[in-house]
Design a protein around this nucleic acid. Sequence first.
DNA 1: CCTTTCATTCATTTTGTCTTGAATAAACCG
DNA 2: CGGTTTATTCAAGACAAAATGAATGAAAGG
Lengths: 178, 178
Amino acid sequence: MSKVPSEEGIRALDEFQLEAIALFVRAASMLSLPRSVAQIYGLLFTTPEPLCLDEITIRLGISRGSAFDGLRWLRELGAVDSVFLPGVRKEHFRAEFQLRKLATGFLRNQIQPHVDNGTEHLKRLKETIDPASQDADFYRDRLQQINGWHRFFSKALPVIRALAAKPHFRLPRKAARS
Amino acid sequence: MSKVPSEEGIRALDEFQLEAIALFVRAASMLSLPRSVAQIYGLLFTTPEPLCLDEITIRLGISRGSAFDGLRWLRELGAVDSVFLPGVRKEHFRAEFQLRKLATGFLRNQIQPHVDNGTEHLKRLKETIDPASQDADFYRDRLQQINGWHRFFSKALPVIRALAAKPHFRLPRKAARS
DNA sequence: CCTTTCATTCATTTTGTCTTGAATAAACCG
DNA sequence: CGGTTTATTCAAGACAAAATGAATGAAAGG
C-alpha cells in the first residue's frame, strides 16, 4: 500500500511539543547548532515512544538527510539512544536527558578536542618567538597569558562536568509513563 | 599626501602574531564567532601599542566595516578598550585580557540573555499543557526536566564567573613594556 | 562657516553552512 | 539468491551570516 512514508496514523504535534521544540531551537541557536538538530531532540524529548527516522521527517517536515545527520550528531553526543524493538526492523530513537550525560557528551565532542588541540598550537606559538626581536619579552608575556587561559579551561572542564553530575540538579523521581 | 589609508610605516605581521591570530581564530570558531572578530582581538593582543581602526584594516587586510563591527562587538564585551591619546584624534584600541573581564563580558552579553529569556518561555510552556490530555503527566515530567536544566544554568553561571575570577588562574606579574 | 578628518551605517556581494532529495549501499526477508 | 525495506552518502540548491566599500554623519580645526 505504501512505498513512500505516509502520514497514516501519525498525529500532528500538539501545542506543548511545538512550544518545547521552539525552546530547544532557541537554546541551540545559542550554541550555533543547526535548527534541525534541535527540532529532532525536541521532538524525541516530548514524545513518550521512540520514533523512527521516517516518523521524525514527517512530523517535523524535514528531509531524510537532515534527520539522519541530526540523529547521528545527537547519537555521537549521547543525547539520543537508539532502541531496537523486537520484531521491528526500523531503528527507533529516544531522547536521553540526564544532564550529566548531555554535558559530558557535549564537552567530550565539542570542547575537549579544541582544548587538546590548543596544547599543540601553544607549543608552536612558543617557537615563533625570536629571542633577538625587541618584542621578545612582550611576546613571552602574552604567551604566558594564553597559557594561563589554557590551564584555566583544562581545569574548568572537569569542574563543569562535576557540577552537571551533582544529583542536586536532578529531579526528584516521578513516575514515568511506560 | 595621503587621503587614503596607506601602509606607510606599518610593519607587517611577524610570525608570532600570525600564529597567535590563527590560534584566536580557531578558538573563535569553537564559539562560532566571526573570523574578523578573532583576528582583531589577536592583533591587538599581540601588539604592544594601541592601534587605530585604519591600522587594523591595513595589517589584517579586512574592510573598514568589518573592523568597525568587530571592534564594537569586542568593546561591548569588554574585550577591547578604547584609548584616547592626547593630541591624537583617532580613537585607539587595545586588548583587555584579564580572564575575569573576558568571561564576565561573554557571559553577560552572550549567555545571560538566553537564560533570562528561557525563564519566560518556560512559563509559556507550562501553560500549553492541557490537563485533559492523556499526555499531561508525561509532559509535566518533561517540563520538570527542563526546569531542572534551567536551574542548573542559573546556578552554574555564577560559579563559572567565580572560577574565572580566581587569582589562581592569573599570572605572576611580569614587567610589561610601556 | 568651511574643510578636513574620522566614525558609522547599510545595501550589495561574498562566503560558508544547512538542507534537500535522489542515488547508493547495506541489511533483511522469504 | 531476487526483491524489498531501511540506512547512508553526497552533490546541488537554498539560505543565512559575514565582509565589503561607498555613502553619510559627526566632530574638530582653522
